[in-house]
Simulated assay, not measured.
Amino acid sequence: MRKMPTTRPPNTVPAYCQILRGTGPASIHQHVGYLVYIWTIYGDGFWMYPTEIGDGILYGYIWKSSHYEYSQLPISLIDSLY
């Protein structure tokens, strides 16, 4: 497991990017170790610092308004990321 990020995410939310919809594990893998903004299929979004991918799950730290929390997210729930 990689270390938790030491900096807060940006205060701004990037514009939704429809081009990146339906991102799969191979595409997501290039974002491991970088802070990304994720939109789910439910329309909500959040900052995440992915640390690894395995068995259709993205593991990493999700920003929870004042701190990072280690979590896991099924890749099937990701609509787009930036």
Rank of each mutant, 00 (worst) to 15 (best):
E69M: 15
C17E: 15
P9Y: 02
Y59I: 03
Y82H: 13
K3F: 03
N11G: 05
A15W: 10
P5Q: 02
L58A: 13
T23M: 07
M1H: 02
S80Q: 15
W39A: 00
G33Y: 14
D55W: 07
E52V: 06
L58D: 11
P5F: 01
Y37S: 01
T40I: 02
F46E: 05
I19T: 14
Y82C: 09
H67V: 14
G43W: 07
L35I: 03
H29G: 06
S71P: 01
L35D: 00
W47H: 05
I19K: 12
Q30F: 05
T6Y: 00
Q72H: 06
L58R: 10
W39G: 00
G54A: 14
P14A: 08
R2I: 08
Y49F: 14
Y42Q: 09
G45A: 07
S66R: 11
P5T: 00
Y68T: 04
G45S: 13
P14E: 04
F46R: 03
V36S: 00
G43Q: 08
G45E: 03
T51C: 11
L81E: 03
I28Q: 07
G33H: 11
Y68N: 06
I78Q: 06
R8K: 03
Y42A: 11
S27T: 03
S27V: 04
I78M: 08
I28L: 15
R21K: 15
D55L: 12
K64R: 14
S76R: 13
I57E: 05
S27K: 09
Y42F: 09
T7K: 08
A15D: 04
E52R: 14
V36W: 03
Y82I: 04
Q30L: 07
E52A: 13
